[in-house]
Amino acid sequence: MLAKFLYQFTDYFIGFNVFRYITVRAALAAITALVLSWWIGPKVIRLLKKYQIGEEIRIEGPQSHQVKRGTPTMGGLIILFSIVIAVLLWADVFNLYLLLIFLTTLVMGLVGFLDDYLKSIMKIKKGLIGRYKLLGQISVGLLLGLVIYFHPFFDGLHSNTSVPFFKNLEIDFGWFYILFIIFVLTGSSNAVNLTDGLDGLATGLSAIAFIALAGMAYVTSNVKFADYLNIIYLPGTEELAIFCMAVFGAAMGFLWFNAYPAEIFMGDTGSLALGTAMGAAAILLKKELLLLLIAGVFIAEALSVIIQTSYFKYTRKRYGQGKRVFKMAPIHHHFELKGWHETKVVIRFWIVGILLALLSLSTFKTQ
């Protein structure tokens, strides 16, 4: 890691002393990921266009989206590349928190890449079969759950999670904590995946969520801040702050190309990786329940699909004809069909995401 290497030369140049500060390394990780995204983005877009690796738009989706057919996809590779390089440069790669979130993110990025490959290159319409995606999510969740539950590093907090809005209140799930982790990781990765349906929507919301998570990781790793805020003190989570800032930078850099009208989509390569990283960060920070606020828009998107599907099946079974709660799900399409322009939906959802992120940070002082 570059920061550790440069810090060794503090005796020769006092300026290198800054690399011991988490804030400096986190800022550098964000800037590095941002610049890398800007640098590699055009190259990846040109390559995908050259080989005609484009998005297939659902026929049953809004008609206005049909013009997006053929837009390069698999842009999640840009995000993952930028995160990996930024983290390797500025974070402590031997930190257990970092290793766990790094592994889970890359594994689900690989699962997403396989899905994009099958759809866009092999032209298999449905891509990776749903149950195989689910198997990947469950496997990653199971691995993370087993490590947290049995590894001595997490002694005393194996199966605990903090409850927002309450001082020093924690829930001990016992053995069910492993299942809880699987549920959180699966839900978060699917929620981001479902949200990725408008230009810049999932990218911008992810950036908002990760900068909030970075702040939480920073104060959680500081014994004075943790004591003042009455939150769980977790030494070592400062490296999660660096990781989250790297994701923030990569997402903002990718948004440069993904904003309306999008030049490239992140595909499942990006959405599954980002969703998994978001869930893993909340789990490692013992803020699983607070994820309901941090990722509130993502959760609303996922719930809209569940509600729509369940109600349609129920009414079809009972009345012989299926009825819908929304004009179309996920809910961002509902607002599109109500007449909102795509950019208006995206910006308003971003605003809600910012408000929820601020609200989630405010719970720290109420605890």
Results as ranks from 00 to 15, higher is better:
residue 194 L to C: 02
residue 259 A to S: 14
residue 256 W to N: 10
residue 316 R to T: 00
residue 263 E to K: 15
residue 112 G to S: 08
residue 233 Y to L: 09
residue 65 H to D: 08
residue 66 Q to H: 13
residue 96 L to T: 02
residue 343 T to F: 02
residue 201 L to D: 08
residue 20 R to S: 02
residue 39 W to M: 14
residue 46 R to F: 05
residue 310 S to C: 05
residue 60 E to Y: 15
residue 177 Y to Q: 03
residue 264 I to E: 07
residue 240 L to Q: 01
residue 239 E to N: 11
residue 277 A to M: 02
residue 8 Q to G: 05
residue 123 K to T: 06
residue 354 I to L: 09
residue 236 G to H: 11
residue 167 K to L: 01
residue 47 L to E: 15
residue 346 V to Q: 07
residue 210 F to S: 08
residue 215 G to W: 02
residue 246 A to F: 01
residue 103 L to D: 00
residue 341 H to A: 12
residue 345 V to N: 00
residue 80 L to E: 04
residue 226 A to E: 03
residue 100 L to D: 01
residue 52 Q to C: 00
residue 107 V to R: 06
residue 257 F to E: 11
residue 141 G to K: 00
residue 314 Y to Q: 11
residue 259 A to G: 10
residue 254 F to M: 07
residue 20 R to T: 10
residue 282 A to P: 11
residue 364 F to E: 09
residue 66 Q to K: 15
residue 186 T to D: 06
residue 201 L to G: 06
residue 361 L to I: 03
residue 104 T to K: 05
residue 341 H to N: 12
residue 237 T to R: 02
residue 245 M to P: 05
residue 153 F to M: 00
residue 36 L to E: 08
residue 223 V to N: 15
residue 179 L to D: 03
residue 358 L to C: 03
residue 151 H to K: 06
residue 254 F to K: 05
residue 100 L to W: 00
residue 250 A to K: 04
residue 126 K to N: 15
residue 133 K to N: 07
residue 149 Y to M: 08
residue 61 G to D: 14
residue 37 S to T: 04
residue 107 V to N: 07
residue 362 S to F: 06
residue 330 P to C: 08
residue 318 R to P: 00
residue 143 L to Y: 09
residue 200 G to Y: 14
residue 249 G to T: 08
residue 48 L to C: 12
residue 210 F to L: 05
residue 184 V to W: 02
residue 181 I to P: 02
residue 152 P to H: 13
residue 231 I to P: 08
residue 352 V to M: 12
residue 216 M to S: 15
residue 243 F to W: 01
residue 262 A to L: 07
residue 338 K to C: 07
residue 255 L to W: 05
residue 151 H to T: 13
residue 128 L to K: 02
residue 153 F to K: 04
residue 21 Y to C: 01
residue 301 E to I: 05
residue 38 W to E: 10
residue 156 G to M: 11
residue 205 L to G: 14
residue 81 F to D: 07
residue 228 Y to F: 12
residue 21 Y to A: 00
residue 74 M to G: 10
residue 48 L to M: 14
residue 158 H to W: 03
residue 11 D to R: 14
residue 19 F to K: 15
residue 50 K to S: 08
residue 185 L to H: 01
residue 163 V to M: 06
residue 215 G to V: 05
residue 325 V to L: 09
residue 51 Y to K: 13
residue 215 G to E: 06
residue 128 L to P: 02
residue 8 Q to Y: 08
residue 198 L to Y: 07
